Computed example of a mutant assay.
Amino acid sequence: MLRLTLALALVASPALASNERAFAPNPDGTTSFIMPSGNVGCTYIPAGGTPVYQTMTGMAELHCTIVEPVYTTVVLEAHLGAPQPIRGGEAPGLPMAGALPYGSFWQAGPFTCLSSRNGLTCTNASGAGLRMARAGVVTW
């Protein structure tokens, strides 16, 4: 009986898929990653925010930034619809973070992001999302 219970526990325990990547949280509780190109990066902000940043709705947010061709940031909220790109004149750069390899995905809270050679695609629990690539930024 103990063997059967242990076998069922091993089968039922969640494991990272071979192409899923996880990143250690930053000291402030956020989690960041960049694309292998170094042109796109995202920071996950957990529900409630951080000691220095409170999310607008109190829910989790995903802040994604592309540097080239036009520095643009998109804030994807946990359950809200289409985000609006924010174009900035000053480019502070991307977070210092691990790379999300092409063909891999990352997920936390209500967000899932897929890295490909054609860009980064992220969605929230409601299906709203963004796509960032040198060809441009698209939100839905």
Results as ranks from 00 to 15, higher is better:
N118I: 03
V75E: 02
Y44H: 14
M96F: 01
A7E: 13
L2E: 10
V75R: 06
P46F: 04
V52C: 02
I34R: 09
R134D: 10
M132W: 00
T73I: 07
A12R: 07
L80Y: 14
T55Q: 06
L62P: 00
P69Y: 03
F111T: 06
E20K: 06
P46I: 01
F111P: 02
M56H: 10
T73F: 02
L10Q: 10
A108R: 15
P14R: 07
Y71E: 07
H79Q: 13
E68Y: 12
L10K: 02
G81V: 05
C122W: 02
E20W: 06
A78C: 02
V137F: 08
P110C: 15
L114S: 13
W106I: 02
P83C: 06
S115P: 09
N118G: 08
T121K: 14
G119V: 05
G98H: 04
S32E: 08
G93N: 03
L8T: 01
L100K: 10
R3G: 11
P83F: 04
P110E: 13
G48D: 04
G98K: 06
A47V: 10
G38Y: 08
N19F: 09
G88C: 01
F33E: 00
P36T: 12
L114M: 12
E68T: 12
A125Q: 13
A99I: 00
V74A: 04
F111D: 05
P110I: 15
R21T: 13
I45N: 08
T5N: 00
S37D: 15
E77F: 09
P101F: 01
T31W: 00
V11K: 02
T121I: 11
T30K: 05
F23R: 04
T121P: 03
A91Q: 14
L2P: 00
R3F: 11
P25K: 06
V137K: 08
G129Q: 07
N19C: 10
P69K: 01
L62M: 12
F23I: 05
L4A: 15
L80H: 11
G109A: 06
T139R: 03
V11R: 04
S115I: 07
L4S: 12
R21Q: 15
A24P: 10
A91C: 08
Y44S: 08
Q107L: 04
A108D: 14
E68I: 06
R21F: 06
L76E: 08
N39M: 09
A17P: 00
C64A: 07
L6I: 13
M96A: 12
A108F: 01
S13H: 12
T112Q: 14
R87P: 01
T57S: 14
V74N: 04
I86T: 11
E77S: 11
E61S: 07
V70A: 11
C122A: 09
M132G: 02
V67E: 13
S115A: 15
G103Y: 04
S115F: 09
A133K: 07
G38C: 08
A17H: 10
W106L: 04
C64N: 06
T65V: 12
P85Y: 05
Q54P: 00
L114C: 01
L130N: 00
V75K: 03
P85E: 01
F105L: 06
T50H: 06
G88Y: 00
T65S: 15
Q54L: 09
V52K: 09
G127V: 13
T121L: 07
Q54N: 10
R87E: 11
V74S: 05
Q107R: 15
P95D: 02
I45T: 13
Q84H: 09
P14F: 03
A15R: 13
